[in-house]
Design a protein around this nucleic acid. Sequence first.
DNA 1: CGGTTTTGACCGGCGC
DNA 2: GCGCCGGTCAAAACCG
Length: 240
Amino acid sequence: MDETSLGIDLNVSPYYKTDDTPQMNDDMAGELNQMRLKNKKLREMITVVLENSNSLQNHVNKLMQEHDSFASNTNKRKFSQCDDRNSSESRKSLHQESLKSRNDGVTKVYRRTDPSDKSMIIKDGYQWRKYGQKVTRDNPCPRAYYKCSFAPSCPVKKKVQRSVDDEGLLVAIYDGEHNHENVESEHKVASYERFKSSKEVGRFDAIFVEQMANSLRKNPDFIEELAVAISSKILEHDVF
DNA sequence: CGGTTTTGACCGGCGC
DNA sequence: GCGCCGGTCAAAACCG
């Protein structure tokens, strides 16, 4: 690939002119227009991604409601027994998604992971300190015990264990409510406040896109949902 | 050096 | 009382 294939003609670059101050020529105007078009396309893509994210969130909420009603219909069984036995049923609708259910201050989160990934980490925006690990009788996979890093002021604990019949499914049981802000959401609020006070309206697009990209790039859930959304769009339109 | 993880020991609840 | 089991403690190891 050479410079002509890139649409760049070095001989007519404004920086080759004797005048020190670069002047807008036809090539630069064309590049500027192309950049504007690309920016517009990026904004449209972000809009589509956000819409997909919202629809996914709605779908997850629906699943949560279905799961809760199912759990209440089967409350003759002990709650702790529901984990792994329900997982094979919920798994069918859980592909690539997480699911939450609550019971008496105990929150359960199901998270699909790569079965080859042996780590027991579920990123939820809070910082945790592991204080124990135990192999339980009904599951050969060890159960990890975590306390919130803000303990003892924050009483929240969580247990993380792989599902007994699906090693790709992590089950996290949260006990209690955090009495402080989520570290990630704090960071997002802080960066939004900085953005709001920046007053650089002319750089609105650049700052907005950069901050969104940085924020989303660090979010593994978003990457996962983005991959699902894109693949579903590819299948839907059968293009590329 | 301070925070986190690992891991064996210990504790308490429960069923027999 | 005894054994089993889940949960927690705490010292040592590890890591940035």
